[in-house]
Design a protein around this nucleic acid. Structure first.
Length: 281
DNA sequence: CAAACTCCCTGTTAGC
DNA sequence: TGCTAACAGGGAGTTT
């Protein structure tokens, strides 16, 4: 499923191809994909808008757009791929398959297709970048995301570390796969009480998050078997319950934390009683 | 305020 | 073998 690395690679793949292109028309094949505004407005605003840049914020692909009606306005198309979404550039004349939910017809004979089997993906069009960006915490690959900022975030959090990593309001971009992979690399138990990580552990976790994400980007994304991402990166613990830990050969276990499947090594990622949160097991 | 549900979806897989 | 039910997941919204 697309998380920060897959979204980053999506942006890299399409940015140079669509920057500078004009949108001839937008087609909406599944209305609920569009969060805002309504479909008529959505199409009206996008028609003849020019793509000025493509960026990433957390797990969002952001198309920066310039419209020219009576005066110039900047708009932002926030695309969230959720679990199964993907963006494809294809010849405009080719008919889309049944999983394509939205199409931007571009000048130059190509179309940007938003394909999403499970219909969980969402697209928002707004002139207010901050409205969506401000809902998100610091980007996990922001150079400002360091030991100090992570320490600040964990500060008084009494809950387990794992759901903190998944909370986009606190840190943007980490999903279930990379949360588990980062904790494994940092040798921190997912149940570990967030506020009782030592400075050493916080440093290790901060470094692990960055390195795990960068490695995944470099490898072209992580292939977790759902066919959505065609990367070569293989998870060390995610989905590997029953397999052995690559570091110590102990069996990887799977549990559930905050309604999420969670994978870890009980030997490499031990949980001291003093660090345990209340009400587990 | 935080944690826990519920809902949205559908391809895949476990279980009978 | 063939069917059904459970499962997976991110985030918004609701309830506890």
């Amino acid at each position: 499923m697309p998380e920060l690395p897959e979204v980053e690679n999506t942006v890299s793949r399409i940015a140079s191809e669509i920057t500078g292109k004009r949108i001839r028309a937008a087609q909406v094949l599944w209305k609920r994909t569009i969060t805002e505004p309504n479909v008529a407005q959505f199409k009206r605003i996008l028609a003849n808008a020019t793509v000025s840049a493509v960026t990433r914020r957390g797990k969002f692909v952001v198309l920066h757009l310039r419209t020219k009606h009576t005066h110039t306005t900047n708009y932002y198309l926030f695309i969230h791929l959720r679990m199964a979404g993907s963006l494809h550039l294809r010849p405009a004349k080719l008919p889309p398959d049944k999983f394509v939910r939205m199409i931007l017809q571009l000048t130059g004979g190509k179309a940007l297709c938003f394909r999403d089997i499970r219909k969980f993906g969402r697209v928002s069009l707004t002139s207010d970048y901050k409205k969506i960006s401000d809902r998100l915490g610091i980007d996990a690959l922001d150079p400002q995301f360091n030991y100090r900022s992570l320490q600040q975030i964990l500060g008084k959090k009494s809950g387990a570390i794992k759901p903190i990593l998944l909370n986009q309001k606190l840190i943007a971009g980490i999903g279930n796969i990379y949360a588990d992979e980062s904790l494994w690399r940092a040798r921190i138990n997912p149940y570990h009480k967030a506020s009782s990580l030592t400075p050493t552990e916080i440093k290790r976790l901060n470094n692990s998050i960055r390195l795990v994400l960068l490695a995944a980007i470099r490898m072209g994304g992580t292939d977790n078997g759902d066919g959505v991402v065609a990367g070569n990166n293989k998870p060390k613990v995610y989905g590997k319950n029953g397999d052995r830990c690559p570091r110590c050969r102990t069996l990887i276990v799977k549990t559930r934390i905050a309604q999420r499947g969670t994978h870890y090594c009980t030997k490499c990622q031990p949980l001291l009683k003093s660090n345990r949160i209340a009400n587990i097991f």
